[in-house]
């Protein structure tokens, strides 16, 4: 019985604590006509030089444009546990933020349940194309196969060994879209080139990504690319071995200025700007966006430090132009 006695005391203490705190709680900040307030929830760290960083950079950019007095944002990063992310989304929504961005395709189902409970708050989620028909939900996705295709064209033109290596995370979603686009670009330029694709089964295993890059180089690759945050391991190897690298999601030039040729970057500011103006006009959702080369939500960034031959760059520009005006068909993801 002694043990039960202890438990009772323990529970009483917990209960006391909880009531004490309930009274001491500061009231949630009231909604005001002040700055536009955004809350962002991301699955990985905002400095991952990949997916999560892309939305963070967009927030910083918009804050720069609108000024801190008019635009404020808060964020919860590293929310890879969907359940925790759902709690964060719900909590931010209840605090009167104008817009809550759930930056991960894994958050969709949670958003579908939360958004109807907060009809006055606007939500956005991506990457996906589905607003579930809920009036206060925006959706955004990236046609990452487009930049993948351009990178593939450039890679094929610079390739000499006849082999190109690709390091992917898990064989799904945005990463697969990019990789498939890349392969299509290579094949369209030179069908004889072998493209070796390796999915390492993880978004976080930098060591395995590095070893995959070593293996690609061992198999004769002189040009490589890859997607997601663990590719920094592959970039390191490419730098060491002097193998060319094409990036995506964020500008990876700073990692290895010697060998990064070009990167496709996501500029979500294009989307967020439009969402903000819609919200200010009173439209809280219902629109699905896609960033593309055409609307400049996707951009090809060429490393100024890399001496890219003019004729090769012309090929890349032609591919970009072709995708924008629709004369180039990628054959991936409806493009």
């Amino acid at each position: 019985m002694k043990r039960f006695g202890k438990l009772v005391i323990f529970l009483v203490m917990v209960a006391m604590l909880s009531t004490a705190c309930a009274t001491a709680t500061p009231a949630a900040p009231a909604e005001s006509a002040g700055p536009f307030r955004v809350a962002v929830v991301t699955p990985s760290a905002i400095n991952d030089l990949a997916f999560s960083q892309s939305i963070y950079d967009a927030m910083v950019k918009i804050q720069g444009e609108m000024g801190e007095a008019n635009f404020q944002f808060v964020l919860s990063d590293g929310m890879f546990v969907v359940d925790d992310a759902a709690a964060a989304i719900r909590d931010y929504a209840s605090q009167g933020y104008n817009l809550v961005i759930a930056h991960g395709s894994q958050y969709g189902a949670a958003l579908q349940e939360i958004a109807p409970d907060f009809p006055n708050v606007s939500f956005a989620w991506g990457t996906a194309g589905d607003t579930f028909g809920i009036p206060n939900v925006f959706a955004y996705e990236a046609f990452s196969q487009e930049g993948g295709y351009v990178n593939g064209v450039l890679a094929a033109a610079l390739n000499e060994s006849g082999t190109i290596g690709v390091v992917g995370p898990v064989e799904v979603g945005d990463a697969k879209l990019y990789v498939d686009g890349f392969v299509a670009g290579v094949k369209a330029t030179n069908p004889d080139i072998t493209v070796n694709v390796n999915y390492i089964g993880s978004f976080g295993d930098v060591a395995l990504a590095s070893e995959a890059a070593q293996t690609h180089i061992g198999a004769g690759a002189d040009v490589m690319t890859g997607s997601a945050q663990m590719v920094v391991g592959a970039v390191g190897v490419a730098k060491e071995k002097g193998v060319l690298w094409f990036g995506t999601q964020a500008d990876q030039t700073s990692l290895a200025p010697e060998i990064v040729v070009a990167c496709q970057i996501y500029d979500w500011a294009v989307v967020v700007r439009d969402i903000i103006s819609l919200i200010q006009e009173g439209t809280l959702g219902g629109k699905a966006y896609a960033v593309s080369l055409q609307n400049e939500g996707l951009k090809m960034i060429y490393n100024p430090g890399f001496n890219l031959p003019a004729d090769v760059k012309a090929l890349g520009d032609a591919a970009t132009k072709g995708i924008i005006d629709g004369t180039v068909t990628i054959g991936v993801g409806g493009k």
Binding site: P43, F80, V81, D84, G104, A109, V170, S202
Partner: peptide, 18 residues
């Protein structure tokens, strides 16, 4: 009870919450 569906980001913790 909680999720009503399953999704993976390639880690165990995304489902189990550790």
């Amino acid at each position: 009870g909680v999720n009503h569906f399953m999704i993976t980001d390639g880690t165990a913790a995304s489902f189990t919450g550790s």
